[in-house]
Amino acid sequence: MSRIVQLDGLRGLFIILITINHVNTPLTEFTYQPLGYVSAAEGFVFLSGLVAGLVYYKRLARTGLRKVVVGAIQRARTIYIYHLISLFIVCAVGYYSIIHYHYWTEVLTRFFQTPVQSLVLSLFLLYQPDFLDILPLYCLLLLSLPFLMYQFRKGNSRWVLAVSIGIWGMSQLGLGLSYKATKLLASYLPGAELSYMDIFAWQILFVAGVYLAYRRASGNELRVPSYMIWPAIAIITVLTLNRFNVLGKTEDMWWNLIDKHRLGPLRLINFGALVIVIDFLMRSYRGLFAQSWLVILGKHSLQVFSLHIVLIFLLLPMVAYYSDNNSIALLALVGFILVCLYLLAWVRERKKHVQKVAVLA
């Protein structure tokens, strides 16, 4: 079974988890960071680098670096367009609908205060409210893909990884694009709002994914020794117990170590342990993440992810207003959104299949 198929299935699973978490149902307590201090967002960014690397390394072998550069730019442009469409829909509804205005006031504060400036800044990815900050991150990271691939092929892996770790380290020292940078930027450009996720920190996940893809494409796949599964499980178990306060409420003592927007060191260790365990499961149970419905969601992750944002912004205020955040109503909303996401992915997959058949005919 193709590794990309398994990874697409895993991406589909992450999209489901992200959807549940964004709606904030009773399930969210268990779906948000269920295995320690790692959320689906980290996995989504890492898989984006890994899958992009696997796909573009095949293209590199067939067509050369120039085609890879063109392909990466075109893909980044597509992501950029989907992001802007989603953002403009969300802002328009929030601006003209009283219910949506009040519900999303905290998320869209800067837009409601300075709508024109915010929309103009969004064209330069300088306005990224919550829920709408993953695609800009992916768009910017994807532009670095050809450079990373070229450097890895030249044998500069150690230097690239060292620089990536160094940039992540800068974020830990408060020198990244964090809240301080947002406040500074907003003082000069009213309406500006950077991503919750510091790109200085989160780039390390994307770079790691591209590096693993390079190792696989070059026939020198990085394999973790089988005995490492037990330390990884131990790390995940301890951090999961702490996450759910079984070991006592100690998060405040080491907040910087598990900080999400800067990817604290303990969070990265937790993530690495999860990668080891999931890789073991993928090798041992090849069909585990290769369920067709998950794979379809993962293959069309851009369109599915964009639709889930729009549906949540449109429907969640209505459900909250008319049901007073009733748990059953929120769960029904999640189910409805997931059905819509699957139908979109299925239609796109069906259309793709019909076009392929027509070409072969």
Rank of each mutant, 00 (worst) to 15 (best):
V23K: 00
V23I: 15
N24G: 05
T25L: 04
T25D: 06
P26W: 02
P26C: 06
P26A: 07
L27H: 04
L27C: 07
T28L: 08
T28H: 06
E29D: 12
E29P: 01
F30I: 01
Y32F: 14
Y32L: 12
P34G: 08
G36T: 04
G36D: 12
G36W: 01
Y37L: 05
V38P: 04
V38L: 06
S39V: 00
A41W: 03
E42D: 14
E42H: 08
E42S: 10
G43N: 04
G43E: 07
F44H: 09
V45T: 05
V45F: 00
F46M: 04
F46V: 05
S48I: 11
V51I: 14
A52T: 08
G53K: 01
L54K: 01
L54C: 06
L54I: 06
Y56V: 02
Y57K: 02
Y57H: 10
K58G: 15
K58T: 09
R59N: 07
L60I: 05
L60P: 05
L60F: 09
T63V: 15
T63I: 14
G64L: 10
G64P: 12
R66H: 08
R66M: 10
K67E: 15
V69M: 15
G71Q: 11
Q74N: 11
R75M: 07
R75K: 12
R75Y: 06
R75S: 09
T78D: 07
Y82H: 01
Y82K: 00
H83Y: 10
I85R: 09
I89Y: 00
I89E: 05
V90P: 01
V90M: 09
V90Q: 02
V90E: 05
V90R: 00
C91L: 11
A92N: 07
A92R: 00
V93D: 08
G94V: 10
G94I: 08
G94A: 12
S97T: 04
I98G: 04
I99H: 03
H100A: 13
Y103T: 09
Y103M: 04
Y103E: 12
V107E: 14
V107T: 14
L108D: 01
T109K: 14
R110W: 11
R110S: 14
R110I: 06
F111S: 09
Q113L: 14
Q113T: 10
Q113H: 11
Q113C: 08
P115L: 05
P115M: 07
P115W: 03
V116P: 06
S118K: 01
S118W: 00
L119Q: 12
V120S: 13
L121I: 00
S122A: 15
S122W: 02
L123D: 10
D130R: 10
F131W: 11
L132M: 11
L132S: 02
D133N: 12
I134Y: 02
I134G: 01
L135M: 13
L135H: 03
L135A: 05
P136W: 01
L137Q: 01
L137I: 05
Y138C: 04
C139T: 09
L140V: 14
L140I: 11
L140M: 15
L141Y: 00
L143T: 03
S144Q: 08
S144R: 02
